[in-house]
């Protein structure tokens, strides 16, 4: 997902307090920043919300790549609005993480020096305009699968951020589907581009949900804490089931010869992505890992004088005001 492979931190707290905390979560109460919480809950959430926030921010890069080259002014305005939303989503999430006691600069620096990750999907390139449609359709579609249940997560600020994000996310998926639909219904060359985008982005999209449940040992604690609401495979299956008819409508073929409806299960059977590729991308060896981190570092460094300048101005103004009083 936008947060992948989040390992729950071990917790060494008073068993009585832990039990009372778990009872609150089981009763559906929201945990707020000033409430007592296990250290493991706090640390796991900082990592998870932080990784989610970083994904929103880094996710602007592959799409921002096409703003100046959008095929029409309307598509350009739409893409610009979408990418601006992603910045907003990153900010909502950073603020939620900050309520847990990490500062914005700290969490930003952890992204910049590689201590924290962002979603593997953003290490793939957007090679042409069809990819922009496919990203909205598939990547935002996969993100929604995870974000909708997270609106009910136990941590209040995270839940509220998710509610805001989900309100805006549907626009993202729809604009993507609309863009790729126009190509799928266009000239044979355009349709070929749409199919090519689906071919390249299908498996990376499936990887967004993280490793298969049988290899994902970190889920139990996070699910008990209600900071993970569904298993990776549950969400992946839901995404496949939802996306196959959407592809069929477009006349596009999912690049999986073994994909077929399983009457007995009531779900599509599908081929798992190549997990060795996933782990390789996570390790930093994807096609764009180096570019993405370099772009974030450059933005941070180039913005230093702006941050410093505005702060110096604010301090000077405040000092002047005090002197006048």
């Amino acid at each position: 997902m936008y947060a992948q492979m989040i390992k729950s931190e071990a917790t060494q707290d008073d068993p009585e307090k832990l039990a009372a905390f778990q009872a609150r979560i089981d009763a559906g109460e929201k945990i707020e920043p000033k409430d007592w919480m296990p250290e493991g809950y706090r640390k796991t959430l900082i990592r998870q919300i932080g990784q989610h926030a970083h994904s929103e921010i880094v996710g602007q890069l592959p799409e921002g790549n096409w703003i100046t080259r959008a095929p029409t002014l309307e598509r350009k305005a739409i893409l610009l609005a979408k990418v601006q939303d992603e910045a907003g989503h990153g900010l909502y999430l950073y603020c939620a993480a900050e309520t847990l006691g990490v500062s914005r600069d700290e969490i930003t620096e952890m992204l910049l020096d590689g201590r924290m990750k962002y979603s593997s999907i953003f290490n793939y390139p957007t090679l042409n305009w069809a990819d922009i449609g496919a990203v909205g359709w598939l990547v935002d579609g996969a993100a929604i699968m995870n974000q909708v249940p997270l609106q009910r997560t136990s941590f209040g600020p995270y839940s509220r951020a998710m509610i805001r994000i989900c309100k805006e996310e549907s626009f993202h998926q729809r604009q993507g589907y609309d863009a790729i639909r126009q190509m799928a219904e266009g000239t044979p060359e355009q349709k070929k581009m749409a199919q090519d985008a689906l071919n390249r982005l299908w498996y990376p999209s499936l990887m967004m949900f993280g490793p298969s449940d049988k290899d994902s040992v970190h889920s139990a604690q996070s699910m008990a804490w209600k900071i993970k609401m569904n298993t990776n495979d549950e969400l992946r299956q839901k995404f496949v089931d939802q996306t196959v008819p959407q592809a069929e409508y477009l006349g596009l073929t999912i690049p999986d010869p073994d994909l077929k409806w399983n009457e007995e299960r009531g779900h599509y059977d599908y081929t798992d992505p190549d997990w060795s590729e996933f782990f390789d991308v996570i390790k930093g060896n994807g096609p764009c890992n180096v570019d993405r981190l370099a772009a974030r570092n450059k933005a941070w460094d180039d913005g230093q004088w702006v941050r410093d300048g505005l702060l110096a101005h604010a301090r000077k103004k405040a000092a002047g005001k005090h002197a006048a009083e």
């Binding site: 601006q84 907003g88 900010l91 909502y92 603020c95 900050e98 914005r104 509220r160 951020a161 805001r164 941050r307 505005l310 702060l311 101005h313 604010a314 103004k317 405040a318």
Partner: peptide, 18 residues
């Protein structure tokens, strides 16, 4: 929600965008 800004004026401008 919340956000970071150097002063109140910028906070209002950023809040409008966010």
């Amino acid at each position: 929600g919340s956000l970071h800004a150097p002063d109140a004026e910028m906070a209002i401008k950023n809040a409008r965008d966010v």
